[in-house]
Amino acid sequence: MSAAPTCETRLARVALGDREAFVAMYRDSAPRLFAVLLHLLGNRAEAEATLPDLYVEIRARAAHRRPGRGGAEAWLVALAREIALERRHRRPAGPEDALPPSVCAPRLDACLRRLSPERAEALQRAWLWGETPDQLSRRVAMPPGALCARLRDDLTVLAACLHGAPENAQTARATAMAGACLLGLLPVDEAELAEDRIAIDADFARLVDRWRTDLAQMVGGLDPVPPPPEVLAALDLRLFADRDRPLWQRLGLVQAVLGAAAAAGILLLALELGLLNDSPGQPPDSTRPP
């Protein structure tokens, strides 16, 4: 008996345009991702409107994801967070959101409790709300640079709690930098260096992916929420409608043939009227019979 498809294998098939894999992945993952959107957006109508856009992005980006770079489930949660934060950032400025009750998975929750409540909240706000160093520093009345240095120390503590003490100081620094990169807590110049490093340093890229998996556990305690039943049908129509049309229709051959026929008709009419027989600037041929 063959093993049931995993999220990883389904994502790989989605990247190839497999409709059945997409439907199966949606049915497995949508209740959890819809719960994530509800938690991050705090508004059911907005979460329902965002869910289809999330799955369009999943299908579009699946082809660019490298298998083995972090868990597939964590990648989906990270993408849900990204889309939700984009929605939040488009909202008009309003009252500050209070941090919701913790829904961390137990292991991450236990490690966050090793930090002071204020410092744990800063990390949670950075992940849940995408708050920037400037926003976080105003909250705790610290210069952004000093706050970022403190947050890196906190990430080092968190990583040691989750995965054990680092091998050496260099690994500890790289681990903290990877976490700060993922949370958007690096200055612009350091962020650019970190992005370049991800592309060329496999060990550093793995640290970033490990943080993606770890921080996805900030919503690891959420109960799944069934999404509206009509979303899947709408997505199927939006993403795969062309699959049900004959090939000649998908290639637009009808339009091409009709266009060519119209052009030929115009050309024949022009020849019949003599519009194309005379060279520009030359008088009409006087020998032509009337």
Rank of each mutant, 00 (worst) to 15 (best):
N43S: 11
P106Q: 02
L40Y: 00
D18T: 09
L267Q: 11
P133G: 02
D97A: 15
L237N: 12
F34C: 05
A263P: 03
R212L: 04
A105I: 00
L112F: 03
A233H: 04
L232R: 00
R173Y: 06
E131M: 09
Y26K: 14
A205S: 13
V77E: 05
L128D: 07
D278M: 06
N43H: 11
L155I: 09
P100I: 05
A60P: 04
T6I: 15
L273K: 14
G281T: 12
L112M: 12
T50G: 02
L16Y: 01
S116E: 09
R173W: 12
H163M: 01
L276N: 04
S116D: 08
A120D: 02
R206N: 10
L99I: 02
V23S: 03
D285T: 03
P290D: 08
A78P: 02
T287C: 10
Q124L: 06
I266R: 14
D189H: 05
A141G: 00
R88D: 05
D223E: 14
P224I: 05
M25K: 06
H64K: 14
C7Q: 07
W127Q: 06
S116V: 00
D201H: 11
L275R: 11
P67E: 05
A63L: 14
P101G: 14
I198N: 03
L147W: 04
T156L: 12
P144Y: 00
R206C: 05
F240N: 08
A80F: 09
T175N: 14
A126V: 05
G274A: 13
L185E: 01
L247V: 13
Q124T: 01
R119H: 08
R66M: 05
R69S: 10
E46L: 14
L267A: 15
D214I: 07
A98D: 12
R238L: 06
Y55V: 07
L232T: 06
H64L: 15
L186A: 13
W211G: 12
R173N: 15
R61V: 11
D153S: 09
L269Q: 14
I83V: 15
A169M: 08
Q282S: 05
M25D: 09
L207H: 06
L33I: 12
